[in-house]
Design a protein around this nucleic acid. Structure first.
Lengths: 225, 225
DNA sequence: CCCGTAATCAACCATATGTTTAGTTAACAT
DNA sequence: ATGTTAACTAAACATATGGTTGATTACGGG
């Protein structure tokens, strides 16, 4: 892992700033997601990265800045994906289903710690976040809202509130992916032990729930108020 | 507040163990919910409770035990309410709507810190929790599952998976109530500033989403596989 | 080959924090 | 009144932690 990352442009180097930075980012991502900002000593990050802890200050300028770099990187791809989808001209219900799948994909494969970090940040009220970073969640919010609003105005969705819909959607997804560890622990304790549900099944469940839950009533149905 | 709580059985007492314990529990509940276990120094709890910090060890035997006492108290009422509802013989869709309302009620009025604490605990993988406490979330899970399973077997709901349904329901609710602070901050930054949605509107939204999303198809509809 | 510099490291420092302790005081029974 | 004890306090302690420093080393250019 580290040794591989340390293979630089021409040959393995005993000193490689880029590899050190990478190792710190990787170690920090995992640890912060697991235990939260306050729960991780810089010594633990350094040890996991097999690097001297002074390197955190040397390369990032302190624990806080390392954390911000990690959050920024982790959030970046998610924001980009969601905004790309929001721009799609396809029917809103279809786009929403794909959005759910994409979030599931990113949350399981590309950034397995995204949901934990997002939730921790949000729980902390954005205390650790830069003003520059705090707008990334806001952009996700905006993108989902746009999709839902379009579905409503196209008549594909009931006249639901886009903001509330966004919150319920993101909430159920983030909650699921962020709480896998705890779920395993609880379910394993049950007699008979229950197998924790897998991500793909949950993604499909949310897709179906939203599809049915947002669908416009059949033509000629009651239209409240 | 404290002075009021310190009015004992017959007259105000300069020393009142019960009042001191209460003050510590109240202060701890608020602070732990806000900043998490690791984020709160015992000195802060003691200060907020207007009590000497050694009292935490004297009355509870340490920070950890104070935390466990708080979580236990906070989770207790929620578990009781949910299990009471699960035992109701009324139609499952109706019970589920009420369950959502009850969770909203408890999360806003009686235990405004329940969702934050629950989410933090779950994120930590139950690291701080006693085996005795870890089964409280499991009981909530069981109760919701029973309601959903009954709705399915009664033909009121589509043949959804009760566990997945539980996760999506609890996830969307807990997420909403735990992230109010962050939401306010993000929404206030938008131009024009958006008023954060209130709890009652969200409860209704989730009720409707579930009602529509779980409802059995009209008679004679397709039955997959 | 040799030097300058970026990168790295071990040790140190200042501070914060959970817990302990030794002493003090108020409530109450007698 | 007084002795006993639970409740409380201030100070001390041990440890953990984030950050700094000054020396050291490897890499690349000359």
């Amino acid at each position: 892992m580290t040794s591989a990352a340390r293979i630089g442009s021409h040959r393995a180097r005993r000193r490689d700033a880029a590899a050190t930075r990478e190792a710190l980012l990787a170690a920090g991502t995992e640890l912060f997601a697991e235990r939260g900002y306050d729960g991780v000593p810089v010594a633990a990050i350094a040890q996991k990265a097999a690097v001297n802890k002074a390197m955190i200050n040397y390369h990032f300028g302190g624990k806080r800045n390392l954390y911000l770099a990690i959050v920024s990187a982790t959030f970046g791809e998610m924001v980009a994906s969601v905004e790309r989808l929001a721009a799609s001209p396809r029917p809103a219900p279809e786009v929403l289903r794909e959005l759910i799948a994409v979030v599931g994909e990113i949350a399981t494969r590309r950034h397995p710690h995204f949901c934990s970090m997002m939730l921790r940040e949000v729980l902390a009220g954005g205390k650790h976040l830069d003003p520059a970073l705090i707008d990334k969640p806001a952009r996700i919010l905006g993108a989902v809202q746009r999709i839902v609003a379009r579905g409503v105005s196209d008549g594909d969705f009931r006249p639901v509130d886009p903001l509330l819909t966004h919150l319920s959607l993101v909430g159920s997804l983030v909650f699921f992916f962020a709480t896998a560890r705890f779920r395993e622990r609880v379910l394993a304790k049950r007699r008979p032990a229950i197998k924790p549900p897998d991500a793909a099944a949950y993604v499909k469940h949310i897709q179906d729930l939203l599809t049915h839950g947002l669908a416009a009533e059949r033509r000629g149905a009651r239209r409240g108020a």
